[in-house]
Design a protein around this nucleic acid. Structure first.
Lengths: 138, 138
DNA sequence: CTAAGTGCAAAATGTTTGCATACTT
DNA sequence: AAGTATGCAAACATTTTGCACTTAG
């Protein structure tokens, strides 16, 4: 088994995510660290994120092609998951226990253990499905 | 509103998906058409897929970064959605009406209209969560 | 000392775009 | 004719990789 060394760079990436508490793209993290004067190379940010995801401290969320993955520190945020609107592209984070029912169903009927953090629910958000006021097509 | 012309290329792409009935990456479609002797350029395949998705004949499914989007003809396959294993990477298509409950919940509690075709449930599949025989972690 | 991690720049991947040409209607 | 679509190659954006060097244990 491979042991992981503690490095300044990885600590910096993790503490950024911990302090923020929100979802961030790799690019955002890179820029933020740069502005803070922290020197962490782009490649290292990606590699650190990969390790942090493997270790379970951080979750990745792949929204859709052409957009970046979103990373987020998960210290107990077990009910958190994402609703992504296919019309406006916005992603809403929902903290809601319905995911428990989902987990139960998929485990019992499909032998499948749902990941609360990485699951993406696609659909149309309330803003975009507002009746009448919609723009006349695209 | 913009009218769409019927073209040989788009018909070819659509009929490939109809005949297959399965999910395919753009790359697969391009290769398959090439082998069939159909001449459709890569760019046109992408553009056709985009139009077909817009028209509702085809669904896209973005699995995760570094992998291609999956396209699929949806002629009434309304109960179809994807379970993706984060360990082995396999994607299982599930046809199951539980999605009705999901739809109800997200609509009632979040004003969000779930897309049956594009939603991705991430988790660990039964093969990968088989007890006892698992590798000793990482 | 050795395994693991870093930084850089270059590569890779999957998809999109500009533009001149060719279809559809 | 006017509006779309095509094909090609070049551009893109995000992420990954090779390699020589540094650091943690």
């Amino acid at each position: 088994m491979q042991t992981t060394y503690r490095t300044r760079q990885r600590a910096v990436v993790l503490s950024f995510l911990i302090n923020s508490g929100n979802c961030h793209t790799a690019e955002e993290i890179i820029k933020a660290l740069e502005e803070k004067g922290e020197t962490v190379s782009k490649a290292t940010v990606y590699r650190s994120l990969e390790l942090l995801v493997k270790s379970g401290d951080v979750s990745v969320f792949y929204s859709s092609r052409g957009e970046s993955a979103l990373y987020r520190y998960i210290g107990g945020h077990s009910d958190h998951f994402h609703l992504k609107c296919t019309q406006c592209g916005k992603t809403v984070c929902a903290d809601c226990s319905f995911i428990n029912s989902m987990q139960k169903h998929f485990y019992e009927h499909h032998g499948f253990n749902v990941s609360r953090q990485r699951t993406v629910i696609y659909g149309v958000c309330s803003d975009c499905s507002a009746p009448a006021i919609q723009p006349l097509s695209h």
